[in-house]
Structure formats: structure tokens, C-alpha cells
Simulated assay, not measured.
Amino acid sequence: MKALLIAVLIAFSAFTAWVMAQVGYVGIWTGALANPGSEQVLVDLVIACALICVWMIKDAQQRGAQAWPFVLITLTAGSFGPLLYLLLRRPQAA
């Protein structure tokens, strides 16, 4: 599982770096608000990220960890937060 998460994180990081080089951070948001179709995708991603943040908070509490760094990353950088959380989370508390 960790190997798959690392592969996804590396591939997504490379793609994100390429996109940022092409359009920049503001360009990503401009594209996300360009038309109703892209706005729908943005709203869908916001809902999915919010649900993931709720899960991360509950999971971190059960593990005796803090979720806030990963929630902040999710709010500012999307899927990087949950990917890093899954890679770095502590084992389940006994």
C-alpha cells in the first residue's frame, strides 16, 4: 500500500509541477472557474476534500495524533494532504 501511495504522490507531484510551470497557481483557479463544467468539478473536489478532512480528523483522534497539518495542506494543496496523511500516519493506538 505504501509503495502505491508513494508512486501516486510522485506522479501527482510531477504533474502538479508541470501544471504550475504552465499556468501558475492563479491559472489553476482561473481554469477551475472558467465555465460551469469546470466549476462543477471544483465544487465536487471541495466536497470530497471536506469529507476526507472529517475522516482524517476522526482517524487521527483514534490514533492519538494531530490531523491539523494535513487538513491545512488539504485546504491549500488538495490531494497532497490526504496522500501525506496516509503515508505518515501513526499505527492504530491499542
Rank of each mutant, 00 (worst) to 15 (best):
A17Y: 09
L4V: 15
E39L: 15
A65S: 13
P82H: 07
G27R: 09
V43D: 06
F12G: 09
V23E: 13
V23A: 07
I6T: 11
A60P: 00
D59A: 00
A93P: 00
A67N: 05
A7D: 09
Y85Q: 03
Q66W: 05
N35Y: 06
R63T: 03
Q66E: 12
Q92N: 01
Y25V: 14
A3N: 10
L84T: 09
A48T: 13
A21P: 00
L45I: 12
V8Q: 08
A48M: 13
G31F: 13
Q40F: 15
Q61E: 11
A50C: 13
A3K: 12
A93D: 05
M1Q: 08
E39H: 04
L83G: 02
A94S: 06
A32N: 10
T74P: 03
A94M: 03
I57M: 02
R90I: 05
F12D: 11
I6S: 05
Q92R: 06
L75C: 11
R89M: 10
A21I: 03
P82F: 04
D59T: 03
I10K: 07
G27W: 10
Q92S: 02
I28F: 11
V54T: 02
Q66Y: 04
C49M: 14
D59P: 00
L72G: 04
G37M: 14
S13Q: 09
L51E: 01
A50T: 14
L83N: 03
A94G: 05
I6W: 13
L83E: 06
G24P: 02
L4E: 08
G64K: 07
R89L: 04
R89N: 03
Q92F: 01
V23K: 12
A17V: 11
I47S: 04
A14F: 10
Q62D: 09
Q40T: 15
V71M: 08
V54R: 04
Q22C: 04
V19H: 04
L87Q: 06
A14P: 02
L45A: 12
P82Q: 06
V23R: 11
A77P: 00
R63W: 02
K58W: 07
E39R: 15
A77C: 13
W18M: 11
T76C: 08
R89Q: 11
R89P: 01
C53W: 01
Q61G: 00
T74Q: 07
I47K: 03
S13I: 09
R90W: 01
K58R: 11
C49N: 13
I52P: 00
V71E: 08
T74K: 02
A50F: 12
A14Q: 07
A65G: 07
G24R: 06
F12S: 13
T16D: 10
